[in-house]
Amino acid sequence: MTRTPGQRLLVALPYLWLLVLFLAPFLIVLKISLSDLAVARPPYMPQFDLSEGWAGVAAFVDALDVENYVFLAEDSLYINAYLSSLRIAAISTVITLLIGYAIAYALARAPRRWRPTLVMLVILPFWTSFLIRVYAWIGILKTEGLLNQALLSVGLIGEPLTILNTNTAVYIGIVYSYLPFMVLPVYATLEKMDESLLEAAADLGSSRLAAFFLVTLPLSLPGVLAGCFLVFIPAIGEFVIPDLLGGSETLMIGKTLWVEFFNNRDWPLASAVAIVLLALLIVPIVLFQRQQMRQEIGT
């Protein structure tokens, strides 16, 4: 296929946009993470000064250091926040997978003419505001909230449970908010599956449970993988959920970054926190992109 100038422009326009507003900002974050905190506007130094020519560039490079990273490595608060984010995201992803798989499986087995409506019912909550959906849980989970009222009136518990402002509330929030991201990719693989494979397994003497683990589950792995990436990666850097539902025990790096930036106004340290978080995420993100590309070529 020969390429006309028009086609070049087609590629160039979105490409340039992303280079300027997606890639360049990361380089700036990297640069500022190597700077020092300053009482000035903007609150970091050194400033880049092109008017002094090469001497200015050299002085600028000289003034950069890895002090912020040393600080991050030495202060256990940050290490614990990273580890705790990974743990909370991993646990939430597993719970989301278990619930999401059951829903996706039921969707794929539902009568064909109901499926579009049922799929839409699963997607619909995702279109309503994330913030509002997280907020809805505050009224349910708090000590005098609806869940405790219900459990008390049935007599299941003697006194109200403390759920809001604990990690349990954070798990509930993440599972609830990210559930459609798990259901949809898993459903997409299950729906495409050839049902005659299950009949073949049954004919060959396999029980339904065995057929599930030997046939259905392996065939749905691409969807499971995509769903897990879509939940795990954003959950690590989640801010709204730990902030509104979590408590003092909840340590998550997205919140640490927010506090460092907005409350302590330490921009260089916040940038270093972001760069380390990005370094942690780069492996799963690249794996996710590979998997998406493979899916695209596959279809």
Binding site: L21, I28, L230, A274, L277
Partner: peptide, 15 residues
């Protein structure tokens, strides 16, 4: 699509 919003927000602001 999967980038934590705090990183996207911070990097755009600094740009």
């Amino acid at each position: 699509l999967v980038m934590p919003e705090v990183i996207t927000g911070l990097s755009l602001l600094l740009l």
